[in-house]
Each structure stands twice: as C-alpha cells, then as structure tokens.
C-alpha cells in the first residue's frame, strides 16, 4: 500500500511538471495556432542557465528569476526571427520550431557541455515522512508552483481583458486585427509567457532530476501528450492530462517495467489521438476534419 502511495506522489509530482510544460504549449497555441516543438527545450535552457547563474555566485532566487527572464526574452527573439516569417503554414511552422529546438540543444552543448548538471533544492533536501511515505521538500515546491501558475493562467485567459484579447487572436486573427488588436504584439507576448512557463517547469524539476542538453525533448513530448489527453488549447485540460500521464507513468514503471515507460506514454498518445482526439476536456471540432 505504501508503495502505491509513494508511486502516486511521485507520479503527481512529475505530472505537475508535464502539466506546466503543457500549459506552455497551450499559451502559444491559443494565440498563434502554432504548436511549439521547442517547448521542452525552453525548460532545459531555463534550468541550465539558472544553474549557471547560481554557480556564478548569485543567490538561488536571483539566479532563478534571471533564468526565467532570459528564457522569456529568448522565446520572443525566436518568435520574431523564426516563427513570424512563416505565418500560418502549419507544416513549415512545425519544421521551423523543430529546427529551433535543435539549435537550442546544440547551443546548450556548446555553452554547458553534455554532462548532466545538478541544482540545489529550494529548501533543503531532508525528506520527511507522511503516512508511511517519504517526501522531499522539493515535491511541495513543485505542487505549489504548478498549482498556482495553472490557476493564475486560467483566470488570466478567462477573466481578464488581455487574456480575452489573446484568445480572440486565436479564434479569428483577421477579425481580431479589425478590432484594433495588434496581432504581432500578442504573438510576441504569448511566446514571452510560454518561454517563462517552460523555464519555470524546467527549474523546479531540476533539483530532483539532473538536467542536460537533451532533457528538453522528453519533457516537451510529455507536455504535448498531457495536452492531447486533456484536450488541446485548454489549460485546465493540460493540467489534468499532465497529472494523469505522470501517475500512469509512475505506476507502469513501478509495477511493469521502467524501460517501457516512454513507450507507454506514446501508446497513450496514439490511443487518445485515434479514439478521442479531442481529449478528455477538449472539443473534437478543432482536431478532426
């Protein structure tokens, strides 16, 4: 029983990270209609640059904030020079974001080397016991950060005026422009936001998992699967999907085999895409033809 609870907690923890990455996807997709295949690499760059700033001697929280801002700015640059020239062409958008991801990984090897790097936990790494299971303090940080950010983003999109503007850009960019919305500014803003979310996801998970140049690929794909499970374009769906995916993965690696863990999330992906491509909470119209 306690093994089950332990797996559940680690699954929920990893799942919140997937959810955060998934929300990064959602933010860009909801404004530009583009799925950013480099989303996971934002997380990787965020974590590695936070580690670098920390090693350079700045306090941990300063290092983290600097890294988040850095990745946000990087994301806006990417939007301006690699994504905007493409417009709305889906296939070219996919290829361009894949190219950006490859460049980010290469640059990470160049700057930080290919070794996996550790990051200190935010508030010590002395585990405590709860109902017979062992929990790291960092787990609470992950839960707290993920939950806060998800709720804030949901409120932002649903209740605030800028959030509604951003959604309008996704629903009908042309009409939004006629209403006087500056589309390009909104696109830039969505990339800024999404880059920052990605960086936060990468940074809060860094203390419990080493980060290296190719850590982003796995995170990005899992984040996307989270979006698919929950329904693409729906931040709450991404969060729910992430948690579900994290728990299923933890259970399968605990009770079946850890080697097939990655394949299992893809089986889930193919299953959802073919059986219920609108996800649990999404609407089917957007996906199918």
């Amino acid at each position: 029983m306690s093994e089950f609870v332990q797996l559940l907690i680690s699954g929920l923890m990893v799942g919140s990270i997937y959810g955060l990455i998934g929300i990064g996807f959602t933010t860009i997709y909801n404004v530009t209609g583009i799925v950013n295949f480099a989303q996971g690499d934002f997380a990787m760059v965020g974590a590695l640059s936070a580690i670098m700033f920390y090693a350079a001697g700045s306090p941990l929280w300063v290092a983290i904030i600097l890294a988040i801002i850095l990745v946000g700015l990087l994301a806006t640059l990417i939007e301006r020079f690699a994504i905007r020239p493409i417009g709305t062409h889906v296939t070219r958008g996919i290829i361009a974001t894949i190219g950006v991801g490859v460049v980010l990984q290469g640059a990470a090897v160049l700057i930080w080397g290919s070794d996996a790097q550790p990051m200190p936990a935010f508030s010590g790494d002395r585990p405590f016991n709860l109902w017979g299971t062992t929990i790291l303090p960092q787990t609470l940080w992950i839960f707290g950060t993920a939950a806060t950010l998800m709720v804030l983003l949901y409120l932002f999109f649903q209740k605030t005026y800028p959030g509604k503007i951003m959604r309008a850009c996704a629903i009908n960019p042309f009409a939004a422009q006629l209403m006087g919305i500056r589309l390009n500014a909104m696109r830039t803003f969505s990339f800024l936001l999404s880059g920052m979310f990605g960086a936060i996801g990468g940074i809060i998970v860094a203390p419990i998992a080493l980060t290296q140049y190719d850590s982003g690929i796995g995170l990005g794909i899992k984040g996307f699967v989270a979006c698919i499970i929950g329904g693409f374009g729906n931040p709450i769906g991404a969060a729910v999907g992430g948690l579900l995916l994290g728990v299923l993965e933890a259970m399968s690696s605990g009770f079946i085999s850890s080697g097939f863990k990655n394949a299992i999330s893809f089986v889930l992906l193919l299953l959802f895409l073919s059986v219920r491509s609108g996800g649990l909470l999404g609407d089917l119209e957007k996906v199918g033809r």
Binding site: I94, N262, F266, S274
Partner: peptide, 17 residues
C-alpha cells in the same frame, strides 16, 4: 484521421515507440 500538428506528434510517437 489527424492533420497538421497532431499528425506530426503521432508520427513522432510512432518513431519513438
């Protein structure tokens, strides 16, 4: 049954599996 991004991710998933 899928198009665009979804097709891309599904084929990527197949490749990784």
């Amino acid at each position: 049954r899928l198009e665009g991004h979804y097709l891309a991710m599904a084929t990527l998933g197949f490749g990784i599996i």
